[in-house]
Amino acid sequence: MESTIYDTPEHQTLREQVARFLAREVEPHADAWERQGFVPREVLRRMGQAGLLGLAFEGEHGGGDADALTNLVFAEALSQSTYAGFVITVLVHTDMAGPHLHHAGNAAQKARHLPRVCAGEAICAVAITEPGAGSDVAGIRTRAVRDGDQWVINGTKMFITNGVHADLYFVAAKTGPGKREVSMFIVEKGTPGFSVGRALHKTGWLSSDTAELVFDNVRVPAANLLGEEGKGFYAVMQNFQTERIALGAMAVGHCQRALQLTLDHVRQRQAFGGPLWDQQTIRQRLSMLDAKVRAARQFMYHCAWNVTQGRDIVQQVSMLKALTGELVNEVVQTCQQFHGGMGFIRETAIERLWRDARVLAIGGGATEVMLEEVAKRY
Score class of each variant (00 low, 15 high):
Thr89Ile: 07
Glu58Asn: 03
Glu60Pro: 11
Ser135Tyr: 02
Ile88Tyr: 14
Thr191Leu: 03
Gln280Leu: 13
Val26Met: 01
Ala258Gln: 10
Pro40Gly: 05
Arg285Phe: 00
Glu27Pro: 06
Gln336Gly: 01
Pro9Tyr: 05
Lys110Ala: 08
Ile245Val: 15
Ala23Asp: 15
Gln309Leu: 14
Leu91Pro: 07
Asn224Pro: 04
Gly163Phe: 08
Val164Ser: 00
Gln315Tyr: 04
His254Gln: 15
Met370Trp: 06
Arg180Trp: 05
Val164Glu: 09
Val307Ser: 04
Ser195Lys: 15
Gly59Ala: 03
Ser3Thr: 07
Phe344Asp: 13
Ala50Cys: 03
Arg285Glu: 14
Gln80Tyr: 13
Leu263Asp: 12
Gly190Trp: 10
Gln279Trp: 08
Ile160Ser: 06
Gly274Ala: 08
His201Ala: 13
Asp149Tyr: 06
Arg355Asn: 14
Gly274Tyr: 00
Gly63Thr: 06
Gly232Tyr: 01
Phe272Trp: 12
Glu212His: 02
Arg219Asn: 08
Ile140Tyr: 04
Ile123Arg: 00
Val126Arg: 02
Ala199Ser: 08
Asp95Glu: 13
Ile160Leu: 07
Gly105Leu: 07
His339Asp: 02
Phe159His: 15
Glu16Lys: 11
Arg141His: 13
Thr191Trp: 11
Glu351Cys: 13
Ala357Gln: 01
Glu76Gln: 10
Arg35Thr: 14
Thr324Gly: 07
Glu373Pro: 08
His113Met: 06
Thr308Val: 03
Gly193Cys: 04
Leu206Gln: 09
Pro28Thr: 04
Ile313Val: 10
